[in-house]
Design a protein around this nucleic acid. Structure first.
Lengths: 229, 229
DNA sequence: CGCGGCTTTGATGTTCATCAAGTAAAGTGG
DNA sequence: CCACTTTACTTGATGAACATCAAAGCCGCG
């Protein structure tokens, strides 16, 4: 996995993450930047690994997972492009409390955490920018988990289908990037009941399923289930 | 609710929150500091209010709640002394996405958010300190919610009892600061089932209950229920 | 006193997990 | 490429976990 040539100036993240840095500073960043590609299924970070880098996704889709017992894991969050994947405890822990796995081909940009920490201490605007972004991601994770928690099975399934349709793919037809089991691990239900609910939605004409492809046919009904189910 | 005189130098938070500021800077902080006391049950912040202050609890106990419908609310977290209560989205939102209510008599210290933001931009070490602390709190909330989510009713009750006993009161006998309904709103179950489970624990000789007072009698058994229930 | 909120218990039905069994799909080695 | 293995998916039957409804006791407060 080779280092890429420095092309931060053209990176779509510049405006997001580096808006507070001067071009000279960005030059400096490039000397310790590392851009890597991961295939679907590959581990990007492993639970328990020492935190050495500050990572974010340039493109692709990843899941944050933690194992809660042998054979059992809990999915914390799905992070899409331009999200941070180093966040939970990155500045307060020494090791990652979760793993990050690519669920689609993903490009990750990593900065050495020590250098990021130095930048935070010396560049207040950069620090503020980091706080804002970390804050937004944590907020998202917390809110998403609360929204899931207050719903029952059909509502949870509706929620996640609409999440992929509206937030990730911005289309009513999309390829489910996750297995039924992964949905189950995310919403805290069993695989069988995830499948059953999807089948019911299909029988009721709310969605069409063919393998991993989902088409939302009756958006209104799905929204109502999300609201009241 | 009067402003207190400036006594930050002696505040137990100095080492926690202000360790990165010089005495002169702390002096400056004091000119826009506001310390207030709240009685049990009082609202400290209200969902939807504009975020003008950066608040933390000096002493007491509060709950972070959000209303999810008429008659229904969800408890996000219990914050004890020296916790931050302004966190979720404080640097990325304009209004509070949740309310904060005192569940015991509580003293809250508030700093004007605009001044805190300025300090973050001009004092990198302060910024870093804020990031660390926000990070730790978000991490706690996320982890707690995941731990609750993966358990069933008895495990969830055991979890919250042990949380109050070990983390908050550091004693096996304590006054439950929350109603049965509030426990229910936190763990995502009904009030009746919270009561039923507590009664079962009592019948099984795991705890003693008299009103709000809880005594943990069989710690081993409670720990096992927390682990496997 | 009496009202309203909190608590408690029981009865009942719904929701969900578990177990079982079978099918489809996807990877593996010859 | 095909037999083989494994993994993902699907459906049904059953029982456990939980919500809901109902009713009554308790307690603080006006």
């Amino acid at each position: 996995m080779p280092l890429s040539k420095c092309n931060c100036e053209g990176c779509e993240l510049k405006g997001l993450f580096f808006s507070e840095l001067t071009n000279d500073e960005i030059e400096a960043v490039c000397t310790w930047k590392d851009e890597r590609s991961y295939k679907k299924g590959e581990y990007i970070l492993r639970e328990g690994d020492p935190i050495k880098e500050f990572c974010y996704t340039k493109s692709g889709l990843v899941k944050l997972v933690r194992s809660v017992s042998d054979q059992e894991e809990q999915i914390i969050y799905f992070a899409s492009s331009l999200d941070f994947i180093s966040l939970l405890g990155i500045f307060s822990n020494d090791t990652y409390p979760y793993s990050v796995v690519a669920i689609e081909d993903t490009v990750v940009c990593s900065l050495r955490i020590s250098e990021v920490k130095t930048f935070i201490r010396t560049n207040g605007n950069f620090a503020f920018s980091v706080i804002q972004k970390l804050n937004r991601v944590s907020d998202n994770i917390i809110t998403t988990n609360l929204e899931i928690k207050r719903r029952r099975l059909p509502g949870r399934i509706a929620y996640i289908l609409l999440y992929f349709a509206n937030d990730i793919y911005k289309h009513t037809t999309f390829e489910l990037p996750v297995s039924r089991k992964e949905i189950a691990d995310f919403i805290g239900m069993t695989t069988e009941n995830v499948i059953r609910t999807l089948s019911e939605f299909r029988r009721d004409g709310i969605i069409k399923i063919s393998g991993k492809t989902i088409e939302i046919v009756d958006m209104d009904k799905l929204l109502k289930i999300k609201q009241f189910g």
